[in-house]
Lab assay of single mutants.
Amino acid sequence: SYYEILDVPRSASADDIKKAYRRKALQWHPDKNPDNKEFAEKKFKEVAEAYEVLSDKHKREIYDR
């Protein structure tokens, strides 16, 4: 789930989600993982997609249904 990707509970606040996104984006940024760039790019995209949905109140409500 998007919550698992960002490592936050379903009850996470918008601020918690933003902090988790920043932490995970740094962790999986391809430039930070030169030895495993392809895998890092995949993870980085997953993190971005999760944040896009969970950071938008309307999209998150739909996702949580």
Rank of each mutant, 00 (worst) to 15 (best):
F44L: 14
V8I: 13
L6M: 05
Y3I: 00
A12I: 02
Y2W: 11
P34N: 08
L6D: 00
I62H: 13
A48R: 15
A25G: 05
D7H: 06
E4N: 09
H58V: 14
Y21D: 01
K37A: 12
R22H: 15
K19T: 11
K19Y: 07
A50H: 00
D35L: 14
K42G: 08
N33I: 04
Q27E: 13
S13A: 06
D16K: 06
L6C: 01
K18S: 11
S13V: 04
K19R: 14
R65Q: 14
A14Q: 14
I5M: 07
Q27S: 05
K37G: 06
A40E: 02
Y21R: 04
E52I: 10
E4F: 07
E61F: 07
Y21E: 02
K45M: 11
V47G: 01
K37V: 12
A20H: 03
I17H: 00
V8F: 00
K24M: 13
I17E: 00
Y21M: 05
S11R: 07
Y21A: 12
K24Q: 07
I62S: 09
H58W: 12
H58G: 12
H58A: 14
K43N: 07
A20W: 00
S55D: 05
I5H: 04
I17L: 08
L26D: 15
V47I: 15
E38V: 10
P30I: 05
H58L: 13
W28N: 03
K37W: 07
Y63K: 03
S1L: 12
V47K: 00
W28V: 03
V53C: 10
Y51Q: 01
R60M: 02
D31S: 13
N36C: 14
L6Y: 01
D64C: 03
E52M: 11
F44C: 07
R65D: 06
I62L: 12
P30A: 07
A25F: 15
D56N: 09
L54T: 02
D15T: 10
E49W: 08
H29Y: 07
F44Q: 06
A12D: 01
L26M: 14
D35F: 13
K32A: 14
Y3P: 00
A25P: 00
E38W: 09
S55K: 09
R22C: 14
E46W: 05
Y3T: 01
S55M: 07
D7Q: 10
A48V: 15
R10L: 10
K43A: 07
S11M: 08
Q27P: 02
Q27V: 07
D7K: 04
D35T: 12
V53M: 05
A12P: 03
D16R: 06
R23I: 15
P9M: 07
L54C: 01
F39P: 03
K59F: 06
D31C: 10
E46S: 05
Y51P: 01
L6V: 01
H58C: 13
E4T: 09
K59Q: 11
I62P: 03
A50G: 02
V8R: 01
K43I: 10
D64Y: 02
K43G: 02
W28E: 02
D56F: 02
R23H: 11
D35I: 08
A14E: 13
L6E: 00
N36R: 12
K37C: 06
D15G: 10
L6P: 01
I62E: 15
E49I: 09
V8A: 03
D35E: 13
R23F: 11
V47W: 02
A14S: 13
K32F: 14
R23Y: 08
A40T: 04
K42C: 13
N33G: 04
E4I: 08
E41T: 11
R10D: 06
L54Q: 00
Y21N: 02
P30C: 05
P30W: 04
Q27C: 07
I5W: 12
K18A: 13
K45V: 07
R65K: 14
K45Y: 08
I17S: 00
A50P: 00
K45Q: 13
A12R: 00
K19S: 14
K57D: 12
Y2H: 06
F39Y: 15
V8L: 12
K24H: 05
D35S: 12
S55T: 06
I62A: 14
R60W: 02
K19P: 02
H58M: 12
F39G: 06
I17W: 00
Y2N: 02
E61T: 05
H29C: 10
P9V: 07
N33L: 05
A25E: 11
K18V: 12
R65V: 09
R23E: 15
K18G: 09
D15H: 12
E41P: 02
K45I: 08
N33Q: 06
Y2A: 04
S1A: 08
R60G: 03
K42M: 10
A25S: 14
Y63V: 03
E49G: 06
I5R: 05
R10S: 11
A12Y: 00
K57P: 15
A40H: 05
W28S: 03
R22T: 14
D31R: 07
A12H: 01
Y63F: 05
Y21T: 03
F39K: 08
L26T: 11
R65H: 10
R10C: 13
Y3D: 00
A12N: 01
Y3E: 01
E41Y: 08
S55Q: 07
P30F: 04
E52L: 11
R65F: 08
A40N: 04
V47A: 10
K57E: 15
S11N: 15
K37T: 11
K59R: 14
E4C: 14
I5N: 03
A48T: 15
D15Q: 09
I17K: 01
S1M: 09
R60Y: 02
E41S: 12
W28F: 12
K18D: 15
E38A: 14
A48N: 14
D15S: 11
K32D: 07
E4Q: 12
D16S: 06
E38C: 08
N36Y: 05
L26V: 08
A40P: 02
K24R: 06
A48G: 09
F44W: 13
V8N: 00
E49K: 11
Y3C: 01
I62R: 08
D31T: 10
I62D: 11
I62C: 12
K59Y: 06
I5F: 05
E61G: 08
E46Y: 04
Y51V: 03
Q27R: 07
A40W: 07
D31L: 11
Y63N: 02
A50V: 03
K19H: 12
R65T: 11
N36A: 09
E46T: 06
D56P: 01
K59H: 05
R22W: 15
D56K: 04
P30V: 06
F39L: 13
H29E: 09
F39Q: 09
E38M: 09
K32S: 15
S1K: 09
L54V: 02
S55F: 08
Y21S: 03
S13Q: 05
H29P: 02
D56T: 05
V47Q: 02
E49S: 06
N33S: 06
R65S: 13
H29M: 07
S1Y: 11
S55H: 07
E46Q: 12
D56G: 03
K37S: 08
A25I: 14
